[in-house]
Amino acid sequence: MTTYTLWIIITGCLVGFTCGISGSILVLRKMAMIADAISHTVLLGIVLAFLVTQSISGFPMLIGALVIGLFTAIFIEMLHRTGIPSDAAIGVVFTSLFALGVVLISFVGNQVHLDVKHALMGEITFVPWNQLMIAGESYGPVAVWMLGIVCILNIVMIIIFYRPIKISTFDPAYAKLIGIPVGFIHYLLMSMVSLSTVASFDSVGAILVVAMLIVPGATAYLLSQRFLLVIVLSGLIGILSAISGYIVASFWNVSIAGAMATMTGVFFVFAYLFSPRQGVLVKKIQHKKSKVRVS
């Protein structure tokens, strides 16, 4: 294995793990589609960051994505409060902001290395070429650094706020009662999702991030009931999807991001059928056994 391949696999695993742990919490909070919305609108944040700074460097992009991600969440909440059903509110907000992002890209896109296709599907194969250079020394790909920082940030946040996050996820009313700042936790998670999305953006693209955010979390939730285990499993499934996706992609010579997203689906199907307690096939077999026992 060359260093080139290794960097691509490391990037994929970091995307899988970072999105997996932050996404699983959203799945448990029944906010999967808000994750979907944010991962679309972050594109607008990136374009705006470019328009302001005239460069596509990491830090302004993170800030832009964070601002627009939070804006998306607040905006959906606002429209919902005026009486619009939340699904329609999500739909209208993310399509508007995403469309604006795409249109802006097509205006500025030819000035920079940023086109619509790249933004959507990412180009993980370019990641190793864009190295972090300090004083003429190379310290590995920029994308890996960005993903690593966001990943550690996510882990630290989950550890610090583990109890409030857990309680407000399973019983928001009780959480409020015992004085947990539910609103703050909500927006903290939204920020984590925005940051994970933008850090993954370069490698797998804005849309396929959705797969990494939602599917491993949903799969883990089918496998376990315990909060911590769901988060850890989700991260691991993210890594597994990334590695197996890379193998599939290089074998058939297809889009790496597309293959990784497809593999998350394969793992989901496995859990759907064979999960020890939840699996559809497992339930059927148990059902038959119990019937036999009765007769």
Partner: peptide, 22 residues
């Protein structure tokens, strides 16, 4: 399963789309 509507939609949406890209 115990997954709710939004998670179910999210899973199917992203996997089908990812497979389409593939």
């Amino acid at each position: 399963t115990k997954l709710k509507t939004d998670a179910a939609i999210g899973v199917i949406l992203s996997v089908f789309f990812g497979f389409g890209i593939l």
